[in-house]
Simulated scan of single mutants.
Amino acid sequence: MTAEIVEVDFLDPRVLDLRARMGAEMGELYGTPRHSVGAEDVTPESVLACLLALDGDRPVGTVSLRRLRDLVEIKRMFLLPETRGTGLAARMLAAIEDRARAVTDRVVLHTGERQRAAIALYTRSAYEPIEIYEPYDQVPESLCFAKRLDDPALL
């Protein structure tokens, strides 16, 4: 897929629509909206970057980077189902890691154990499992990962 990846505001309406779709998909997958436990709350002030993937002018994916206490966290990565398996997810992950390198040498992320494709992507992209960090220690089925960005072997 030849989607263009652009940086946009975290509250861009196209991103809001994609995040709403993500919420619905996660609700179907886990049976309860994940944001209901409060762990998925992201304040716009904490966001360091928000990317949007466009296929022409059609929004097809998003990912954000935020500061969470002393961590820099990749957040809210979502692609429309029909774009999955095209390589776009890996491109988006690499693009948000590039933004992260400007502020940190390590990123973390959270996903759920039922999100097999996401886990496979993170594993292929050199992310290592880590201890579940707050606030996800309150979210059932949580998995957390980290990646060093300063190790040339991982670039």
Rank of each mutant, 00 (worst) to 15 (best):
L54F: 09
A126H: 10
Y136T: 06
T86Q: 06
R67C: 03
I119N: 07
I96A: 02
P81D: 05
I5A: 03
L149E: 00
L16T: 13
A117C: 09
V42N: 15
S36F: 11
H35A: 07
A95H: 04
E45M: 01
G85R: 13
T83K: 12
R116L: 04
D12T: 07
P33M: 13
A126W: 06
G27E: 15
E4I: 10
M26I: 15
V108K: 06
K147L: 05
G23Y: 01
T43A: 14
E25C: 07
G38I: 02
P44I: 01
A153W: 14
R124T: 10
L154N: 08
V37W: 00
G85K: 12
G87M: 10
S125F: 02
R84P: 09
G85H: 12
A49I: 02
P129E: 14
R99D: 03
G27P: 02
T111W: 02
L65E: 08
L155Y: 01
C50W: 07
E131M: 10
G56Y: 10
A90K: 10
P135K: 02
E141L: 04
E73A: 03
L16F: 13
R67T: 07
L80T: 14
A90I: 09
M22S: 13
I130N: 00
T83R: 15
T62N: 08
G87P: 11
P44L: 00
V72Q: 01
E82P: 00
G27W: 00
P33C: 09
L52T: 07
S142H: 07
E40C: 04
D41K: 15
